[in-house]
Design a protein around this nucleic acid. Structure first.
Lengths: 282, 282
DNA sequence: CAGGGACGATACCCTGAAGGTATCGCCACA
DNA sequence: TGTGGCGATACCTTCAGGGTATCGTCCCTG
């Protein structure tokens, strides 16, 4: 199977529409139809049901969509990592570390400091990501290591080491009645009618339905919270980002958040190994 | 990057010889040379050093060999799993479980029995593998789950659950002086001049140098041991395979062997999940 | 030191796979 | 019953990828 075929199939499987998929791929619709049916013939499996008026995935098609994405990511990763390895020879050696924009910078600063002190350390490019983006960077080789947060980020397929486990706090606008409390239950904050939780864009860029305001970044979140438009449930270490307009109250029964350092399972990079070691030594 | 290019590069990188690689790929040498230099041009990286008389990998080439193999495995896995998913629809649903030929069948029997009792269980195809082969089957999608043994098998990149941890024993021919002992140190058995450890073929099929006899399978090993030609160091559970010609003596300081059940990290198969659950329930 | 052989690169040709345009066939819906 | 949307088919074109012949270079050897 060629990656071109996989890319074609993934496009159709995502769009569920040959015309749009062809447009996205920058080719005409007929060659796309042909490529897909040829792929189906070679696999000996129906991937799509063209039941006039609608294209849907078969069971096998769903499997190929999932596995095919992983395979394409792996190919892309091979490409990126090779390019970066070639740069490294010319003295441009560096590691790319992906982290969530707005996450605790204290931990990160310590980590970078500890690593920089190592003998043989190289430059660390810190890439600040939107939610969920780090994973993709790591899978496609555009990043070498990432700081992820369990259970928010999907850790499957990565090697990880735990760095920090913490509880969560509710961030409320100053003056809100609940700010008088010293602790809260999760159920007390999730369904407040006039202080809804914010909505994040999904991986496809669209927002789920709901009453809360839309947000793309951490800083937006804190602004929205300060304006009394939303309520945040965030890890304890986010306290450092509070200002006088915001009050934090611990939520006793919220799931614990574990900050981990993650890297692709077969990484052979010395720099990544050193970075992880530095992270574990605090 | 197309998988064809990756296959070409991997062939050359493994052979370190354009002519042989071309032969292996079933094409002529000139198009292979061209394909590789085109790949290098597109990546903007030298992958091979053609220093007359010898082809060697550059740093970037080594990275691409490694990452490229993983990517090719992922593509192959997508293909296999899709084919199997298509079969499953026709009522042929089954899971492929890879296990080392000759490994403890007691554990496996219990596992299969427990799984078969589950509601909704499907047929389990048990594939008996040579050493190290299970990993590859799992990575390329020809198997859905595998029984692996830490630290012998490489678990990186798989999700695993531990099933059993055990010590190791030395297997000696009956009548050997050491059979009178009730326990041994590892150092006492590894370097016996007239009872050397056997040699296994590596992933490339070639044998390492050494004094011991060559063996391909577990049953061969036990035969060789019974003939007094070799000494085995194996997990405790292999006792069940001993006959009257062989004597087992525990090795107190041998590394512990952990039997794990492993599956690809993003498996979505219900059957795999059930199988793992059954395995953990004993 | 000349000649031969091993090996990768280059030159040049040819075939077929992949892409484009036009059009068909089918169905839903007005 | 016509019309529009959509995937499939027919047919043409182009160039990427494969083949053969040959070169250039280095090493070895007589």
């Amino acid at each position: 199977m060629e990656t071109r075929e996989l890319r074609y199939f993934v496009a159709v499987a995502e769009e569920l529409h040959f015309g749009r998929a062809a447009q996205r791929l920058g080719i005409a619709q007929p060659p796309l139809s042909r490529a897909i049916s040829q792929l189906e013939r070679r696999l000996g499996a129906a991937l799509l049901k063209r039941d006039s008026r609608a294209v849907t995935l078969t069971e096998a098609g769903a499997v190929l969509l999932h596995e095919g994405r992983a395979a394409l990511d792996a190919v892309e990763a091979a490409e990126h990592r090779t390019r970066r390895a070639a740069l490294a020879v010319t003295g441009q050696a560096s590691v790319v570390l992906a982290t969530k924009a707005g996450a605790s910078s204290e931990l990160l600063a310590k980590l970078l400091h500890a690593y920089a002190a190592e003998p043989g350390s190289v430059d660390v490019d810190v890439v600040l990501c939107g939610p969920g983006e780090q994973e993709q960077l790591l899978r496609t080789g555009r990043a070498d290591v990432a700081i992820l947060h369990h259970p928010f980020d999907d850790l499957t397929g990565f090697d990880t080491e735990e760095l920090l486990t913490e509880g969560q706090i509710a961030v409320l606008p100053a003056g809100h009645p609940l700010t008088t409390r010293t602790s809260l239950q999760l159920s007390e904050v999730t369904e407040l009618p006039n202080l809804p939780l914010p909505r994040w864009p999904g991986v496809d860029g669209s927002y789920p339905d709901g009453p809360g305001p839309e947000a793309q970044s951490h800083s937006q979140l804190f602004q929205l919270a300060a304006l009394g438009r939303t309520l945040l449930v965030v890890p304890d270490s986010a306290r450092s980002q509070l200002n006088e307009d915001l009050v934090a109250v611990p939520i006793v029964d919220a799931p614990e958040v574990t900050t981990v350092i993650a890297w692709p399972p077969h990484s052979r990079s010395r720099a990544v190994a050193d970075l992880v070691r530095a992270a574990l030594r605090r």
